[in-house]
Amino acid sequence: MSIIKKQSELHEDMVTWRHHIHKHPELSFKEDLTSDYIAAVLEANGIEMHRGLAVTGIVATIHGKKEGRVIGLRADMDALPIQEKNDFSHKSVHDGKMHACGHDGHSTMLLGAAVHLKENNNFSGTVHFIFQPAEEGGGGGRVMVEEGIFEKFPCEAVYGMHNWPGMAEGQFAVHDTAVMAANETLKISIKGKGGHAAMPDQCVDPVVIGAQIITALQSVVSRNVAPLDSAVVSITMLDAGFVSNVIPNDMNLTGSLRYFSTDVGNEVKAKIKKIVEGISHSMGATATFSSTPNYPATVNTPKHAELCANAAAEVVGSGNVLRNEKPSMGSEDFSFLLNASEGAYIWIGNGLVPEDGPEGGCMLHNTEYDFNDEILPLGSSYWVQLVQGILK
């Protein structure tokens, strides 16, 4: 049962908020106008807040009618460095910046829940509404934890939600454990011996070595990771050479590693190192391999996942709460909050994506993506049900 009804006054307000935020996208740690706008709505509704965590972050607080437990609800605020190709009235006015991942909708759904609960605080306890910057590669969740969010605003558990194109409007997905993968950046540097392209016999060609390494890396997951485990190795950037008739001295490869289990991640990295060093040495070159952790895996606490599933079922019915969806190899910095607190992260359906084009929706990080305004009441109602179900 959706507490916040479609076409209600609050729904109309949420559409206005969402369109404003979408129209004025800002990148990680620079969400100044977005933060100001959200703060203005909170202030207009008499909701207390703390500003400045992780530069632009906001933590708003609503107390129930009675004392009790304390939970946190989180939404992200930042946009992506993408040029929007949509042509509607609320398209981005900032060249090269776009809300292509729905963070405008995430912030709006949480804001709608806060406005509703301020006037309907018939629960026991306290809710902290966390508006977090810099999810898109900036690690805003990590910064909030490092700056003491859970010391300043202690929470028994923290909860997050992401829209999911390709899943029908009116559905939620709740995972018992793993939801999103860990993410590391891989760097490989090959040092050979350059020279004239017409005299390769006098050189140690790092490009040929790099090509063999890329090919060999395709076997790391398929032949070293157990079939029931998951990992992805992708080489995505190559840097070598400067002119057509010169074999370069060096070649640099950059890529991405994704995994759920730390043991699997370590196993994959050890194998990559052996391949890189082995192939390079066998061909007369030297090479180094390094990896830089970005985001850890997002893993739910099962008991909190169950609470989320119950709340979602109150909104859309148990038949529309998917419990066996595969986790995503994408990453999410809500993982830093879940490493510091128990909790759970769920998906809300943004609508099916047609095969013949973006009309009616498209996938995340697409130049023609837009958040579905019709799910705003569902997402806000889920937050309200979760609060009322936990803080009875």
Rank of each mutant, 00 (worst) to 15 (best):
W164D: 02
K193R: 11
M1N: 14
H90Y: 13
V70D: 04
V208A: 15
L307C: 10
H128V: 09
V264H: 10
H175G: 03
V232F: 04
V353G: 06
N120V: 08
E67R: 06
F371H: 02
V387M: 07
G351H: 08
A113L: 08
A270K: 15
K392P: 15
M363F: 14
F123V: 05
L117E: 10
T126I: 08
T288H: 10
D201I: 06
R258W: 03
F242A: 14
I209G: 05
S35R: 09
H22I: 12
E355T: 08
A211F: 11
W347G: 00
H304K: 07
V41Q: 09
Q388H: 15
L33D: 08
I213C: 12
I190M: 07
S107M: 14
A216W: 10
A134D: 07
V127C: 07
G166R: 03
G351V: 06
F153C: 09
F289D: 03
T16H: 12
V316S: 12
E31Q: 06
A44Q: 07
L322A: 09
A311G: 13
V70K: 12
H24Q: 07
L352A: 03
T56A: 02
F131V: 00
K392S: 13
F129Q: 03
R74P: 00
Y345N: 01
G141V: 00
E368N: 10
E306H: 14
H106M: 09
I213M: 12
H103E: 04
A178V: 13
L217K: 11
G319E: 15
G379W: 02
A226D: 13
L352I: 09
T298S: 12
G57Y: 06
N183Y: 11
K97M: 11
I149V: 15
V204Q: 03
T126G: 06
L386V: 02
Q83T: 13
V179K: 01
N366I: 05
N86H: 03
V315C: 11
D201C: 09
Q132A: 09
V174N: 04
G52D: 02
G46D: 04
V299A: 06
E9P: 03
A157I: 14
G64C: 06
D95E: 14
L364M: 10
L73G: 01
L53F: 04
M167T: 02
F336S: 00
A198M: 14
K118P: 03
E267I: 09
A198G: 15
M199I: 15
D78I: 00
N122C: 10
T254P: 00
D356G: 09
F131Y: 09
R74F: 05
A287Q: 07
R142Y: 11
L378T: 13
F153W: 10
M283L: 14
P206T: 04
K392A: 14
E355I: 10
